[in-house]
Structure formats: structure tokens, C-alpha cells
């Protein structure tokens, strides 16, 4: 048996100290990185507010939120957000009508009826749909959907809330499907077996047992899809025509909050009133999506806890 030369206690002690120092440096770095997300999220809120301050002081938050006209470059300049907010809501509403039934329907089929290979195929398809950049969806909408909407509904322009909403609906599908499918998948098989053993068909099982059990997860999926639709920029910018007028139906052109920021930020004087107003729009947008995401996350967390035991 070979015997390795031993070090003195002093040498080993030195290494221990160094090792402890290194360990604590690393620990500090990792904790700092861990807390970074809180810092960034807070910073986003703070800086949106800081830049929006001038418009809140000069125009007033109430005036902006309830104003029905948006003439940022007219004389006088009018900054009313209602056309933008209603525009966003209308486009999102159309998207909702698309992605809720199709998304949940697809998720139910994938989870309850489909064969293994189809699951893999749809997974890949959904990954692909989620990975296609929004500007590409926008471009496809411009090339395909705008002409179709124009002729199908006999409109003078195909750039409508409907056009943007349809594309947004498609873009939100991956989020809704994958989260709903996860929620359905998390329902224990024992529940399904129990229902089937009672003489229920697969559909009855899905409808009466599985979907209700997964309802919070499906709800979260819908909320996240909604958040994605409201926050989407490029596709709506390219498809809705951007007329800043309060729309009365989905066949009219609308201007969304996101589209407004993207279209006008390039033309404003940095630090000017219009610039500041656009940050106010951003702040409203951030507030809406924050609430939606928070709700979705709280629901998801509760569901996770439920199935854990």
C-alpha cells in the first residue's frame, strides 16, 4: 500500500479558508443572479413610471384613460387612450373567440383521444408555431389574410380588427394548447379509470371528470394566451390598419396600444410630451398584462400544489 505524503495542518487550513472564501463569493453571485428577476421587473415598472411622469403631470392620467380621441400630432394635441384600449380589447376579443374553443378542443383531443405518435407530432407542430416570429405571422397576414378578408366580406380594406384578431388567435394557440394539455395530463389516471369503470365513455370521462379537474390549469392557459394577445405588437401593427378611432365593429380598422407605441416611438422627440404619453400607454399595457399573468400564475401554482400529493 502506498502512502501519500501528508501536508501540514497549516497547509490544509489555508486551503480550507480559501475554499470557504471562494464558496461564499460564488454564493453571493448566485444569490444576486437569483434576485435579478425581481430587480428587472421592478425596474421596468419604475422606469415606465419615471418616463410617463411628465404626461401624467401635464395631461393627467384620468384624462388620458378616459379620452376618446387620439391626435398626438394635431393642434391641439389630444391624448385619449380609449380608441387604443378599445382597439386592443376588440382585437383580443376576436383572438379569444379563435383560441379558446380551438385551443381547448385540441388539448382535450391530444390528451384524451390521441395516439402516442400524434401527441409527438402535435408537440412538434406547436413548438414550431410558437417559434415562428410574430413579424412572420404579420407578413403572412398581409400577404394572405388581408386580401381574403377584403373580398370575403366585401370591404374596402382588409385591414380590420378581425384580420388582426384571427392572426393573434393563431399566435396564442401554442400557449393555450401546451398549458391546457399539461393541466389535463397532470390529472391522475386513476380518476379516468374510475370514471370509465362506472360505464362512462371516454368523452363523458373527459367532460365530467378530467376537464373539471384540470379547469384551473386550462383557465391559466387561456389567461396566458390572452396576455400574449394583448401584448403582441408586430402582427397587429401590420394587420389592423391603425386608425385611431373608437371602432364600432370588427370590420373596421383599429389601432392597438402596442401598435401605437411601435409606430410612433420612432417619430417622437425623446423626453418630449408625446414620448412620455407613449410610456403612459406602456404603463397601462404593463399593468394589464401584469394582472393577467399574476392571476394565471397564482392559479397554476395552486394546481401544482393540488396534484403534488
Amino acid at each position: 500500500m502506498k502512502v501519500t505524503p501528508t501536508e501540514t495542518a497549516g497547509q490544509r487550513l489555508g486551503r480550507t479558508t480559501r475554499r470557504r472564501a471562494a464558496e461564499s463569493v460564488v454564493r453571493v453571485l448566485i444569490y444576486a443572479a437569483g434576485l435579478l428577476s425581481i430587480v428587472i421587473l421592478l425596474a421596468i415598472a419604475v422606469f415606465l413610471f419615471v418616463e410617463a411622469r411628465r404626461s401624467i403631470a401635464e395631461v393627467g392620467l384620468g384624462t388620458m384613460l378616459t379620452g376618446t380621441k387620439w391626435f398626438p400630432t394635431g393642434t391641439p394635441k389630444i391624448f385619449g387612450f380609449l380608441p387604443l384600449i378599445i382597439g386592443s380589447l376588440m382585437v383580443t376579443g376576436v383572438a379569444l373567440v379563435v383560441f379558446v374553443p380551438v385551443g381547448i378542443g385540441a388539448a382535450v383531443y391530444i390528451s384524451e383521444f390521441s395516439a402516442g405518435w400524434l401527441k409527438e407530432v402535435t408537440k412538434t407542430v406547436i413548438e414550431f408555431m410558437a417559434a415562428v416570429p410574430s413579424v412572420v405571422y404579420g407578413f403572412l397576414g398581409v400577404a394572405v389574410l388581408i386580401p381574403w378578408v377584403k373580398t370575403a366580406f366585401g370591404l374596402t380594406s382588409g385591414m380590420t380588427a378581425l384580420t388582426g384578431g384571427l392572426v393573434l388567435g393563431v399566435m396564442s394557440l401554442p400557449t393555450v394548447i401546451s398549458i391546457s394539455e399539461d393541466a389535463l395530463h397532470a390529472v391522475p389516471d386513476a380518476l379516468r379509470q374510475g370514471s370509465l369503470a362506472l360505464g362512462n365513455t371516454r368523452w363523458q370521462t373527459a367532460y365530467k371528470v378530467v376537464v373539471p379537474s384540470a379547469s384551473s390549469g386550462i383557465f391559466a392557459g387561456v389567461m396566458l394566451g390572452l396576455g400574449r394577445a394583448i401584448g403582441e405588437t408586430m402582427a397587429v401593427l401590420m394587420l389592423t390598419g391603425n386608425a385611431a378611432v373608437i371602432p364600432t365593429n370588427i370590420f373596421e380598422s383599429v389601432r392597438t396600444m402596442t401598435g401605437t407605441i411601435a409606430a410612433e416611438m420612432g417619430e417622437v422627440v425623446f423626453g418630449g410630451l408625446h414620448y412620455s404619453v407613449l410610456f403612459s400607454v406602456g404603463l397601462v399595457l404593463f399593468g394589464i398584462t401584469f394582472v393577467i399573468n399574476l392571476a394565471a400564475d397564482l392559479v397554476l401554482e395552486r394546481q401544482r400544489k393540488r396534484w403534488r400529493r
Binding site: G34, I44, F47, T258, M265, F279, G282, N293, D297, L300
Partner: peptide
């Protein structure tokens, strides 16, 4: 921290743009 991360994932990209600009 977890809530922040989940929430960051849902912040609209244009809002990140505003943040980056500011």
C-alpha cells in the same frame, strides 16, 4: 422570485422595448 420570473415571461415585448429605450 418565481412570480417575478413567470411575470417577466408575460411582459409584452414592446414594453421591454420601452424599458430598453429608457
Amino acid at each position: 422570485v418565481r412570480l417575478s420570473i413567470a411575470n417577466m415571461a408575460g411582459v409584452p415585448s414592446i414594453v421591454y422595448g420601452l424599458f430598453g429605450l429608457a
